[in-house]
Each structure stands twice: as structure tokens, then as C-alpha cells.
Design a protein around this nucleic acid. Sequence first.
DNA 1: CAAGGTTGCGCG
DNA 2: AAAGCGCGCAACCTTG
Length: 551
Amino acid sequence: MYILLASGPEAGQACLLLLDAAGQPAAEPRVVARPDLSDAVSALERRNRPRWVWQRAQAWYPELLSAGVTVERCHDLSLCQAILAAAESTADTGYPREVPPAAEPFEPRGLVDPAQDSLFEASTGARGAGPEELLAEFRAQLQAIRASTRPARLQLLLAAESAGALVAAEMQHTGVPWRADLHEKLLVEALGPRPPGTQRPAKMEALAAQLREKLGVATVNPDSPQELLRALHRAGIEAKSARSWELQEIDHPAIEPLLAYKKLSRLFSANGWFWLDQWVRHGRFRPEYVVGGVVSGRWASRGGGALQIPKQVRAAVHADPGHKLIVADAAQLEPRVLAALAQDSKMAEAAQSSDLYAGIAAQGFGGDRAKAKVALLGAIYGATTGESGRLMPQLARTYPRAVGLVEEAARAGERGEVVSTFLGRSSPPPSAAWRTAQQTTSEQEQRWADNLARSRGRFTRNFVVQGSAAEWASCWLAELRRALRSRPELGAELVFFLHDEVMVHCPETHVAQVSTLIAEAAQSAKDLIYGRAPINFPVTLAVVDHYDEAK
DNA sequence: CAAGGTTGCGCG
DNA sequence: AAAGCGCGCAACCTTG
């Protein structure tokens, strides 16, 4: 059973419409005033356990969460539309291939009071279309799934994507436990006391002074690559760029303070006091997650750089008293996904080991784990030069199926074709400019066109692996969420998700039980997607007080 | 001066 | 050590 939730006929109203399994209305629409919505949803959720159909979870769910209401399942029309419109498997179903620009995300940014957030949406009509329009879209989607060449896989993908939308809103609501006091302590240790106004922290200023002295200049702004490069050249240092890893190679007394300055400068500007003021409130960091924000199906985030929390500040991510953080990581996810995709039994055999790279090393690289890792990652990313490129033939001999799969994906991309993940998320087609470039007859332009083609080949090569890994991770997350919902007495909160890693905050006493649920969810995800295929996805667990203890 | 592009660096 | 994929963000810098 479904319930469609849409904007009501007037501002400040919502419309609820009960649908049967075929998407047919099963009752008269019901209009409720906004303040009564959460009670209405809560009652219907208890009674019917429906799948909620809405334009975007992000437009409705935060408000429900603020009122203490959660839902088990949803169908996020926008997210599903984006997948279906691009999917190869729906190409012959008549489902529109274009996503209307109106479906672009709307955006409150930053730390917003939920109450104000709701007002903003109501006043701009960001909740989108009314019930008739959404119902038509929903039926078109059900039809597209039925008529697709892989209905079961597509259905699973859309369910996982929609579940992701629920998890994302819930995690944003819950927030990552963040100790501002620890963060500040760490900043003072690294940078010196918080400087007033726009001044540089003391330790950065001291390093800048050292740099000026060693370069023999009166003034230089190390934050300006141009200015810095000129000053280095004047001091006889032949740097090609201001990048740290290039400067590292240079032997000169100015380099050490410069690299130290850059490190501190990054901390100060990206995760300093200003960041703390802006993003952490009441002991939690509440970033906005953007499900489907990456073409491959990975999540992106908006504001606060949630997916790039540097190791340097992870000590501030700290469990509450009497609690632990369980940091779970899907070990070597992408290579395992590749083995499953390619049904490469030799590689799957290597993946029996909890350390896949060691298994690969034993089979084809004389036990040299580092070599095996570089070779495998090179295959997934499309390395052509360096050690990784040189190891490719060796890898291809040992694993013809796995290497063949990524090679074929690359060739397809170079030809301008679309490729798809296991569950059926398809890559975007090449742009008009790309196709035009491929038709050139000029010798000079041909080299540029070949470059573009190879570049797209690397993209499609990586897309099938990264995207299939992302859908596995979505299923893992969805299964874990379901398990934790069924055991509320454990008091476990899902607080963070990062591509192949989840973080759960829970009472110390329940760590063992929650850990089991995390590992079981990984097994369920594998079963859902790959059935009985002989491949496993082990999870590495770290039970810690603070995030920097993990890994 | 605002908008948009580039550089550099953080994460997987 | 940093080639090959995917991102977000701050600061600098150019352009209109």
C-alpha cells in the first residue's frame, strides 16, 4: 500500500491520498492543515505501514522528524525519476528521458532552524507539484519499472535510493556527536589562541615570518600561489607549482616552514573556529547529505564539508558518556564488487580472504601486496602510466574476466555509449560537445578528440565499479536502518555514512549486539543484490570513543 | 564589486 | 611516491 503526500490546494495544507498496490486511489483525498500533518502521518504509519510517495523526502521528512515522527519506507519521486530517465533498461518503455529542470533541488543551506526552514518551503512552494501531477508521475514510474528489461533489479535500486533519502534526513536530524571543547583545544594546540577579527593565528604568523626570512623577502602571502611562486623563483627555487607534494621534493630551508604553514592554513580555513561556529550546535554537527548527488550514485554533501572531515580533527567526533562509536568499514569494497560483477571466480577466491589484496598478491604477484593493490586500483581507475600501468598485463593474465569487464566498459565509453551498474543505474550519455569533437577531420583536433574519448573511457570504466559499490553500500545502509528500527531498545543511532563506511553511536552495553547487526546487514545487502554468488563483503569494525581511533 | 573560473587540498 | 576515478570548499584571481 502507498500513501501519496503532496501540497494541498492552498498554502499551509497537505494532501494525503491512499493508493492500492497498482497506484490506484483507494479512498478520497484527505486535506490536512500543516500543523496537523505530523499527527496524521504518525497515525497512518502505525495503522497501514505504507510506502510514502512524495516528490522529495527532503521536502517533507525533516519537518516530520522535528515532530518526532519517523516512517519505515518511502518512494522518492525525484530521485527515482533521475534514475529511470537515464536507465538503459527503461529505454524502450516510453518513460521520458529528460528530467524537467523544475526537478532541480531547492536549497536552504547552512544551519537552519527547522521551523524557519518549513516557512521557507511553504512560502516558495518548494514542496512542488500537487497530487494529480505526482500521481501521474508515480504511475508512469511503476509502469516504467514493470516494462523495463530488469524490473527486479531496478525495483531494488529505487527502493535503496529512497531508503537512502530517509537515512540522509534522519542523520542530518540526529547529527554527528561533536565535542566543540575538544575541537577548540586541538585548534589552540596547532594554531595558537583564536586570533581576533581577521588576523592570522600566532603559529601561522610565525611560520610566515620564517618563510619570509628564508626567502629573503620583505613580504609574501603564502596563500597566493602566484605570489608565492614568484617569491620562490626569486630565491632561486625552481618550483613548477605551489602544490605541497611538488614542493616536498625541493631541498631548501624555506620549504619546511612553507609546508608547515600550508598545513595549518588548511586547518584554519577549512575546519577552524569559523567552521565550528557555523556548523556545530548543541554538541552535534548536522551536515546536509545530497543523495544521488554524484552520477555514480554516491552521496554528496552540502555545507560543512561533511564527507571530507580531515583526520586532523576527527578526535572531536566523540561518543557521549556511557556510549561508543562503532565505525564500520566495508573492506576493499570496489575490488570485491568487481569480482562479483565479472563473476570472476578466481578473483572471488582471492576475496575469500578478509584481506583481498593479500589474496590477489598470493595468486598473481608473488605475495607482494603493495603491487597487487596498485595493479587492481589501476585497473578500476584506468591507469595507463607508472607502475600501475605496467602491472596491467600481469593482472589481465591472472584475471581475464575482471579486467575484461572494466576494459569493455572503457571501450564502450570511448565509443560514446552508456554503461550501467549491476542494479541498472546508467551513466549519462556524452555531451553534444563531446560528440561533435569525435567527428572532427582535422589532424590537430583529432588528438584532442582522442584525449576526450580516453577520458570518457576512464569515467565509464570507473562508473560501473564505483556505481555498483555505491548501490551495495545503499543496500547495506538500508538494511542496517531496518535492523536498528526493529530494535529500538538498543538505543543505537546511525550518525554518519561515507561511501563505504558507517558510524553508529550507541550505549556501551549494546555494542556487541549492534556490531552483529552491522555485519548481518552487509550479508543481507550481498544476498539482495548478488543472491547466491560466491563472494563475500566483510566489514571491519572499530569500537572507539573518538573517530581518530578508527583506522 | 559581483560572478565565475582556477588552484590547492581534504575525503573515499 | 602519487599515476588513474568521484566529490566540496576556501581562497585567490580574472572578467564583465
